[in-house]
Nucleic acid binder design. Sequence first.
DNA 1: GTCCTAATTAGACACCTGTTTAATTATTTG
DNA 2: CAAATAATTAAACAGGTGTCTAATTAGGAC
Lengths: 222, 222
Amino acid sequence: MSASKSSRRKPGRPKETDSTDLRDRILDAAELEFADHGYSGARMRDIAARAGVNPALIGYYNGSKGELFEEVIRRKGARIAAARHANLDALLARTPAPRVREIVRAYLQPQWDMKESGPLGAAFVRLQARLHAEPEARALRLRREIYDPTAKRYITVLAAALPHLSLEEVSLRMAFLVGTYLFMLNDLGRLSDLSDGQVTTLEKEALLDHLQRFLAAGLRAE
Amino acid sequence: MSASKSSRRKPGRPKETDSTDLRDRILDAAELEFADHGYSGARMRDIAARAGVNPALIGYYNGSKGELFEEVIRRKGARIAAARHANLDALLARTPAPRVREIVRAYLQPQWDMKESGPLGAAFVRLQARLHAEPEARALRLRREIYDPTAKRYITVLAAALPHLSLEEVSLRMAFLVGTYLFMLNDLGRLSDLSDGQVTTLEKEALLDHLQRFLAAGLRAE
DNA sequence: GTCCTAATTAGACACCTGTTTAATTATTTG
DNA sequence: CAAATAATTAAACAGGTGTCTAATTAGGAC
């Protein structure tokens, strides 16, 4: 799984094969810090403190701050992309011409599950939202590399289910979809402000259903 | 318009009433820098250089970095909120029970116009997208202060147009709407990646129509 | 003109940044 | 056991950070 061709320190170098479990602790800590403070706002010393290691160990295991950031994004980004592909495979195997709402579900589910998996998963959703608001070249490249192949495939399948729309229109609506779910998953806790305190009426699972219906209807529009 | 109760330097203090035009130049420069690099990533020296002023003048006119940031957000955020209110006023005066798509349009138009107004307007959209991905307490407070009153009013009007939905459900869909347009306006340039190069088929004005239809259909769903 | 105050500047200040170094401890290898 | 290499550390490094200070210039009031 984890290729980890990184880290080329001089004297002692970690064994390229095993993942030392300290490396993952550092990546987890970095994920939380980057999610909370962004790339520039995150401090290497805080990451080290959170992982309970010496600051120099970050460089030893994960290279520079920039390389650390990319690795954090790639690690879980790849996991999400893979799950989306698998979901689409399963869906297409089940029905050759799936409905829009099923396609939407296949796309949303992995991200939703990750968010619900615990604080680390929720942090990664936050981090993704940040990455998508980042106009910097490096961030843009990362987004393309990780998410575009999957998105393109979904666009193709969606286009088949939406024969009244051109490919450009479907691409546009796919972008809408990404924006909606990213923002929604990230900003969900704030909803209570807008509906004056009570969102407790809606169960968590109902939220995903709601989002799915909203998006499916939007995609089908006109 | 500009209250500007800020800046309490010791020896010389800018006249509280007029806006010196240098102050605005600094705010504009800060807006661009914050939009491109985020709060932590933006450097006071770069802002000063971009405005063509001495770094100390930033503090002289706009206080600390944090205060500068808040002022940048408030300045145009208030403008957008006001335009949304005015649009809704006009719409309600025209028809007591407006359609969903008209409400959506009234909400989207100001942001769209700002984006199209030039590089500064586009920068502010980027900055807003960043602000909405920021979990920090100060950013959250700013968002609430600036955008929530308007959003609440739109939720009320939307709820009247969507009698089959509870207030919680309408609030939730309003959050979807915000996520969609923020992401879409911000990330629009990247769409060409997904549809393999050509989005030129869709005219700019058609994009807003498309977004409006997508959102209206999503809001009406079920 | 002089005086007073606002506007502006260069430079320093204290602190924080990511990263490196050289030394030390732990682990594996023979 | 020794020897070699990997893992880990404390400390320092060079450069950057926001902000302040003291001095200088500009502009009006009288």
